[in-house]
Simulated assay, not measured.
Amino acid sequence: MFNALSGELSYKDETRVFLQTGGVEWEIHTTRISANALPEPGRAARLYVHLYVREDQLRLYGFATAAERAAFLDLLKVEGVGPKQAQKILSGIEVHQLAEALETENLDRLSSIPGIGPKTAQKILLKLRGKLSLGPAPGESLEEDLAGALAGMGFDRKAVRGAVATVMRGLRDSALPREELERELFKRALALLGGQEAGL
């Protein structure tokens, strides 16, 4: 499954964007925070995507950072939280602020997020406390980008962190351009994680 889409942004508002790539214009649902982080229409953009599939629904969601996509997927694991509510939640709070509220068990902060009432806040806290990485502040590093993409594929977060650290040590001083370096790191980390799963 594809990890991200790159192309020219042709339209955006606070809940969706249109992205032209390869002769196709994609309608991508997004958060207010991601929409604000994207450039104005007519410029190049990249979104980390997730295709939500149900019998009666096929909808593409996209995010400005891999960390936000990972948080979106985590929220979908909470009973009673669907993609529209997860989208609304992440429109009202930055990923790092959400992680901090979970780590400090700040129910008042969680309950104040649009789309979350006290009961839902409690469910999110019980399900996700300790499972969202605080990570570095926005302006994410290559390591965070890579880890978010791998976690979004369903790999265990602890295993992902170990694999990313291992491959980064091997290529930290590489002179490859960022895009080539990212592809090589992703390939090596994926092979490492695949080997670990095969050995279980």
Rank of each mutant, 00 (worst) to 15 (best):
L107V: 09
L126T: 13
L190T: 15
E197K: 13
A70C: 01
T15P: 01
L38A: 07
L176T: 06
V164K: 10
H96Q: 14
H29E: 05
P118A: 15
E100F: 05
T21V: 10
V53T: 08
A101V: 11
A35C: 12
G80V: 14
E25I: 02
A159I: 01
L134E: 04
L9T: 03
L125Y: 08
A4G: 01
A189S: 09
R59V: 14
K77Y: 00
R32T: 12
L19G: 08
Q85P: 03
A44R: 14
G22H: 04
R69G: 01
A71N: 05
G23K: 08
A45L: 10
L192M: 11
H96S: 10
G42H: 05
T21F: 00
G82M: 07
K123N: 14
Y48N: 09
Q20G: 12
V24E: 09
Q87S: 12
A99K: 02
E180F: 13
M168P: 09
G148V: 01
W26R: 07
L132R: 00
G130R: 12
A66K: 01
S34Y: 10
D74M: 11
E94W: 04
H29A: 09
E179W: 08
L193G: 06
E144F: 01
D145Q: 15
L190S: 08
L76P: 11
A35M: 08
K12C: 00
F63E: 00
E94I: 03
I33M: 04
G80K: 07
E68P: 10
L185Y: 05
W26I: 14
G80T: 14
L73F: 03
A151K: 15
R46S: 13
G194C: 07
F63Y: 04
Q196A: 14
L5E: 02
N3P: 05
S91D: 10
A99S: 13
A189K: 12
E143C: 04
L185I: 10
T65P: 05
P177Q: 01
E55A: 11
I89R: 00
L132C: 06
R32L: 13
A137P: 02
R16W: 11
V17P: 09
G23M: 10
T104S: 12
G115M: 09
K119P: 02
A101W: 06
Y61Q: 03
G42N: 07
E25T: 08
L51G: 02
N106I: 00
A198S: 06
G162V: 01
P83K: 06
S6P: 00
E179F: 07
I93R: 12
T21D: 06
N36P: 00
L98R: 02
Q122M: 02
I93T: 13
A147E: 12
A137S: 14
G92S: 09
A35N: 11
A37D: 13
S133K: 09
I89M: 02
A198D: 12
P136D: 14
T104A: 08
